[in-house]
Design a protein around this nucleic acid. Structure first.
Length: 495
RNA sequence: GCCCGCAUCGUCUAGCGGUUAGGACACCACUCUUUCAAGGUGGUAACCGGGGUUCGACUCCCCGUGCGGGUACCA
């Protein structure tokens, strides 16, 4: 509770920048999930170019709190390009942006609610609550607090608190019904009978997110709250709290969940799920953003490749989808390939570097050029280029393929003179190799391919590689020559 | 149990009463080609079921079913 904020003061909300103000309020309990990031992306986009996107840290659960996850969250958002206008690191007109530093606001709000009779102290024990719920369940009733402490007098509550009895503060849900027009789901109606007297302030003095979200969203001037449907049932509680505090509620947009391939909620067994994992697999932020945007949104046209900036201009509430989406990694792979091919070679080289630390700096741009249209993920680069960074030793049978070993060796004998002629354009080198192969194949073009294959295997040890001239250039003419010599030796011995 | 949400090809989606139900991924052919890719061409593939409403339902309403979420002093 170390805070510079004045105690028990609930400030008036001031004029805040931005036509729209949307926030992303993650709870620091580990790593950002792909689903979390999608709502962050949506919020960022929906704020629009003339709006503000803020990040707030919802660290009200002291048991699950992992302080070291905050820098990771910010780094992830930055990696994706979701630049925030206000946040815990950069501050802003509503600082602080970390809820644990805003306790006085929540205390003040609670005081106001209790005084207004909209909330009350509750001393019920865990055991009593458990029994209550079990009984309600067997009776076929909604499980909810029975209002046992609702009738406590203020004096009684104060006395028990002063005696040190643990207490929480609960929202007093009035009779009636609660409705709102959801920006994604349309008109919503909840019978207040089914809404629980939610705990707003825990016995440790921290607010639950129900209180924290309401107070902070109001104080921070949030205009639209974008969150996953898992929050839908708690929205009435929030609306009741806003009303009790005399505040106008923001508009709500509940977006559908992202599901795993088996249609269940995304979890560990679905493979990659945190943004860090996708990043380590070699996905580009451009592709992740593009992909995520289409989980629950579409432009209504047949366009499908969008930059983040374009998305920010195009994404609107009325085109958000209400049905859940299954994460299809094959489609992500495809989009990633598209984005890899869009990158200038120098840019791609920079992105490849971490995946290929053994490459010399001057090799990276040629490498980028030769892998650009053959990879869908950056982590495929080392495999594709293994021949350049290790010494392959193909055996005679593999080398000769369907050729007579003597004929294969004879063809390879004629290659070295072609290698020294660099810096030839790749196309010219390939022309010479091809015509040489055709000569050995006596004009049979199909047979010529078998000779070219021998050269490929001899120099790279693999049947599938990037184009030969580029591959040989990467290996280096000298080293390629040695590999050819070795292959000739192996083939001759086998003959 | 109780409350709530969703429902078009395998997947992401377009559609907002009258369409040969469109696109993309994946898949299959063919093509291009030094291998692999990338590219090009073509193809297979969908309105969950039943009732209404309507001259006419993928589109609107109801029921069912399925899937999902919530039901905490977690978010």
């Amino acid at each position: 509770m170390s805070s510079a904020l004045p105690s028990n003061a609930l400030p008036e909300r001031v004029d805040l920048p931005g036509r729209r103000r949307l926030r992303f309020a993650p709870s620091p309990t580990g790593e950002l999930h792909i689903g979390n990031v999608r709502t962050a992306l949506l919020s960022y986009c929906l704020a629009g170019e003339d709006g503000r996107f803020l990040v707030r840290i919802e660290d009200t659960d002291r048991e699950r709190y992992q302080p070291e996850s905050v820098p990771g969250y910010l780094e992830t958002l930055a990696w994706l390009g979701l630049q925030w206008d206000e946040g815990p690191d950069i501050g802003g007109p509503c600082a602080p942006y970390t809820e644990s530093e805003r306790l006085p606001y929540f205390e003040a709000a609670v005081e106001r609610l209790v005084e207004a009779g909209a909330a009350y102290y509750c001393f019920c024990t865990r055991e009593r609550l458990d029994q209550l719920r079990a009984a309600q369940r067997t009776a076929g009733l909604p499980t909810r607090y029975d209002g046992h402490c609702r009738t406590l007098t203020a004096a009684e509550a104060t006395r028990r608190r002063e005696l040190g009895e643990p207490a929480v503060v609960r929202l007093l849900v009035p009779a009636g019904e609660t409705r709102w027009d959801d920006l994604v789901l349309g008109p919503q109606l909840f019978d207040n009978e089914t809404i629980d007297d939610q705990v707003l302030l825990k016995s440790d003095g921290f607010p639950t997110y129900h209180l924290a979200q309401v107070v902070d969203d109001h104080l921070m001037g949030i205009t639209e709250v974008v969150r996953a449907v898992e929050w839908l049932p708690s929205t009435p509680k929030h609306l009741i709290t806003y009303a009790a505090l005399g505040w106008e509620a923001p508009r709500f947009a509940h977006v559908a969940l992202v599901l795993g391939q088996d249609h269940s909620k995304l979890s560990k067994r679905h493979g990659a799920q945190t943004v860090r994992e996708f990043r380590e697999l070699g996905y580009l932020p451009e592709a992740v953003v593009n992909f995520l945007a289409f989980l629950g949104w579409s432009p209504g046209t047949e366009e499908e490749i969008f930059t983040l900036a374009e998305l920010r201009r195009r994404v609107t509430f009325d085109r958000l989808q209400a049905s859940p989406a299954v994460l299809d990694q094959q489609r992500l792979d495809y989009l990633n390939g598209v984005w890899i091919r869009k990158l200038p070679a120098e840019q791609l080289a920079l992105r490849i570097q971490p995946f290929l630390p053994e490459a010399a700096p001057e090799q990276l741009i040629p490498i980028a050029a030769m892998v650009q249209e053959r990879i869908r993920r950056l982590d495929q680069v080392p495999g594709l280029l293994a021949f350049a960074f290790s010494e392959p030793e193909p055996g005679a049978d593999f080398l000769r393929g369907k050729l007579d070993p003597r004929e294969a060796a004879a063809f390879l004998q004629d290659i070295p003179p072609l290698l020294g002629t660099a810096p030839d354009p790749a196309a010219e080198m390939m022309d010479r190799i091809r015509s040489l192969a055709e000569t050995h194949a006596k004009g049979d073009r199909a047979a010529a391919k078998k000779y070219i294959r021998v050269l490929r295997v001899a120099t790279t040890g693999a049947e599938v590689t990037p184009p030969l001239p580029e591959s040989i250039a990467l290996i280096g003419a000298e080293k390629a020559g040695r590999r050819i010599d070795r292959a000739i030796r192996v083939l001759t011995e086998a003959a």
